[in-house]
Design a protein around this nucleic acid. Structure first.
Length: 712
RNA sequence: GGCGAGGUAGCUCAGUUGGUUAGAGCACAGGAUUCAUAACCCUGAGGUCCCGGGUUCAAAUCCCGGUCUCGCUACCA
């Protein structure tokens, strides 16, 4: 494969509405950082960009909730996240932010360019509008009952209880969070990116050209999207937080956050160029640039379908690969900040790295474990016991121990200097060691080029393991006992220690992309400059000059104690319990005010008696019930209303078995307009009561009465 | 329901285009050793490759059906 002229590496822009957890770290930032450090050790021309994603509707919502401003929120989290990355050794060349004027300018230009060439469409649709607040309502500003789990505080874009993504139209009893009123529908015009026009391009590019060199999950998901039929996607919103729509008719509208965020990679590159007196253009325009996006699997569609279409239209290069990682679970459950079931980067830094017995070595410990269980091909699981085992069993026992015993012996048996080689006593073991180093380097290089960071790191540890075996066979401590009787003993000791020392230097080079702080500390021990870590030096056995005095031994890592692990587990459970209790109390406290906190659906606007009189409620008896084919939630019911039997569909299949509800008397809205679902016409609606847990109950007369009885 | 990705040792995972006896690390058991952070080194035990069929001289691998987990998506008056 031809070496690219330059590299542009991106890591997903973190959303600046809160702290980021170690799942994010393992998903995108750590693998990206490893790759970049490797490329830089190769002396390649590479820029590593990232930054805060600061737009979207969630941030102003959160601001309202917390009684602050959107600006205040991003100004709070942007620097914390940036610092967290630094503390964990994620070395971006630039950590930019999308609230920066340079980004607004870049995104505006991008939009105008596409618009002026007719690559966008406009469409007028009805959107929810809050008449009292005189504003269109973003998805996040609408709350209602989740159609999936029945949670009655679901947002218009997602239910935070069950995690399902929604559209505002799906919500039952939608309410504006601004005024508490039911929203009305009103016409608005928006710009759309017609993805459907680019299906052929995507098919060829993804499903033909990259079907073999991209990860199966990535190609699979893209295929699923393309096969499902691509639709035009709105790129603007009625909102005042974000990049203003820069063309006529764009008043009061901003670019949709997913449109503006990836352009953040470009503005970040521009800012980097300004800071370093470089030209940014070749990084986005020259086909000899290799562009790689590191993301989590939730971002696949944006980086593999939508953004590439935008880039193609704008005349930019396309990503050469998008190595998306799966998710990392935690102690048997999904990571979730809102449920308290997560480890924030900030928490880890404060509890481990900034402790007295912590330091940068603890940053590398986390990097090591996260990479060793990186979810490269399937979801993986972080456990504190696993963390302890990985650190104590591999980093400390194999890797650091090899370095330490080398250093101790070298000081005891070789006066703390690099001993010379006695060629006449070199044997097969020595040659095998040198060969193994060269082979390992090739193996690691190949794995890194294929984004297999977990395996690559394992190879480094394996090389250290080989060092231990080598030393075990040579037994210099035994030779040392025979110095008086065996005239060749010192020469053999020298050869062994020389090999171990050169191996240590090689280990420093090879571990550097993964554990940069450790590599640096090893350089300190060896009294060499950072330049020694350049990749081309790996495989050489003359990195440390004979006669050179080295520093006294120093431990690279400390062990992780059982008590520390127990404390973390206890803390995790306590956090989750605290959040749970908090959610429960806010959901059941009737004294709390407003739909925001009570968990009880807000009262609908007042109606007059005539409105109520229009509804014809009847008692009916369920005579037949069966599941609707190809639908998870629908039951098809035959209900006896006395004067007739009719088919009614109800979304209760997750709550009741069909055979259990036959014979039940229920309340029916008998004069509701018929509606087809899954091809079956439903004539009416069954009333259900729902408790705070989302459990459903039939609304029935207290005693059995004649079917068809009216209710008023 | 549709689509996508997974299911391999107690745990975490490898297994290239079908090809000897299915591998590694951790954990476990035994041994050896003492330079080293109770570290290292050697040996060992441990598997119905989710289930059932099929193709083949030969299947963890290919085909069909089923099942479980995760993700996307549809259904909710």
């Amino acid at each position: 494969m031809k070496t690219p002229k330059r590299y542009l590496i991106t890591a997903a822009l973190p959303y600046a509405n809160g702290l980021k957890h170690i799942g994010h770290l393992a998903g995108a930032y750590l693998p990206a950082d490893i790759y970049v450090r490797y490329l830089k050790a190769q002396k390649r021309d590479v820029v590593f960009v990232c930054g805060s994603d600061e737009h979207g509707t969630a941030i102003p919502i959160q601001a309202t909730k917390e009684g602050t401003t959107a600006q205040a929120i991003i100004d709070k989290y942007h620097p914390i996240i940036e610092q967290n990355f630094k503390d964990l050794g994620i070395a971006f060349d630039i950590y930019h932010r999308t609230s920066d004027p340079l980004h607004h300018e870049t995104a505006s230009e991008f939009f105008k360019d596409l618009e002026s060439r007719g690559d966008l469409e406009t469409k007028t649709t009805e959107q929810y509008f809050d008449a009292q607040a005189n504003t269109f309502l973003a998805d996040r500003y609408i709350k209602g009952t989740c159609p999936n789990c029945g949670h009655n505080e679901a947002y218009g874009d997602q239910c935070e209880k069950c995690g399902k993504s929604l559209s505002p139209e799906e919500l039952i009893n939608p309410v504006s969070t601004l005024s508490g009123n039911a929203p009305i529908k009103k016409e608005t015009t928006h710009w759309y990116l017609p993805l459907n026009r680019h299906e052929d391009f995507l098919r060829k590019w993804l499903l033909e050209e990259h079907v073999n060199d991209w990860r199966p999950a990535v190609v699979g998901q893209c295929k699923s999207w393309i096969e499902g039929g691509l639709q035009p996607r709105a790129v603007t919103r009625d909102l005042d937080w974000g990049v203003k729509v820069p063309v006529a008719g764009g008043d009061g509208k901003v670019l949709y956050v997913w449109f503006d965020a990836p352009i953040g990679y470009i503005s970040a590159t521009k800012q980097w160029a300004i800071n370093n007196d470089k030209d940014w253009k070749p990084y986005w325009n020259d086909p000899e640039t290799k562009l790689v996006h590191f993301i989590g699997k939730d971002n696949i569609v944006f980086h593999c379908i939508i953004f590439p279409v935008m880039l193609k239209l704008h005349g930019n290069i396309l990503p050469e690969n998008v190595p998306a990682n799966e998710f990392m679970n935690l102690e048997g459950d999904k990571m979730s900040t809102s449920r308290g079931w997560s480890i924030e980067m900030d928490d880890y830094i404060n509890k481990w790295i900034k402790k007295e017995n912590g330091g940068e070595a603890l940053a590398d410990c986390l990097r090591f474990y996260l990479n060793s269980i990186a979810p490269e091909s399937k979801d993986s699981e972080f456990t504190w016991k696993g963390f302890q085992d990985a650190v104590n069993g591999e980093l400390v026992s194999i890797f650091a121990n090899f370095v330490n015993r080398t250093w101790v012996l070298m000081h005891k048996l070789c006066n703390g200097k690099v001993p010379k080689i006695h060629i006449e006593y070199l044997d097969d073991e020595d040659n095998a060691l040198l060969l193994a180093v060269k082979e390992t380097k090739e193996k690691i290089t190949a794995l890194l080029e294929q984004y297999k960071f977990r395996d690559a790191q394992f190879e480094v540890i394996n090389l250290a393991r080989l060092g231990n075996q080598y030393m075990q066979k040579k037994e210099p401590w035994i030779l040392a006992k025979n110095l008086d009787t065996d005239p060749t003993a010192q020469a053999k000791i020298d050869n062994c220690m020389h090999g171990c020392l050169q191996l240590t230097a090689n280990l420093a080079i090879l571990i550097n992309p993964f554990l940069p702080f450790t590599a640096k500390k090893m350089c300190h021990l060896m009294k060499v400059v950072d330049r020694m870590l350049e990749w081309e030096n790996a495989g050489n056995f003359n990195l440390l000059k004979v006669g050179y005095t080295l520093r006294p031994p120093e431990l690279l890592f400390r062990k992780i104690e059982d008590e520390e692990i127990a404390a973390e587990l206890a803390q995790l459970k306590a956090n989750a319990d605290a959040k749970k209790t908090k959610m429960e109390t806010t959901n059941t406290n009737p004294a709390a005010e407003g739909a925001e906190t009570t968990g009880v659906a807000a009262l609908k606007p007042e109606i007059v008696f005539d409105d109520f009189g229009k509804i014809d409620l009847r008692v009916g008896t369920i005579v037949e019930a069966k599941k609707v084919e190809k639908a998870d939630k629908l039951l098809e019911l035959l209900v006896d209303l006395g004067f007739e039997k009719r088919t009614i569909l109800s979304g209760i299949a997750m709550h009741f078995n069909p055979e259990d509800i036959v014979g039940k008397q229920v309340t029916i809205v008998a004069n509701l307009a018929p509606r087809k679902m899954r091809g079956i016409e439903s004539k009416g609606m069954i009333l259900m009561a729902e408790d705070a847990q989302g459990k459903l109950y039939f609304v029935s007369p207290s005693e059995a009465i004649a079917a068809g009885s009216s209710i008023a």
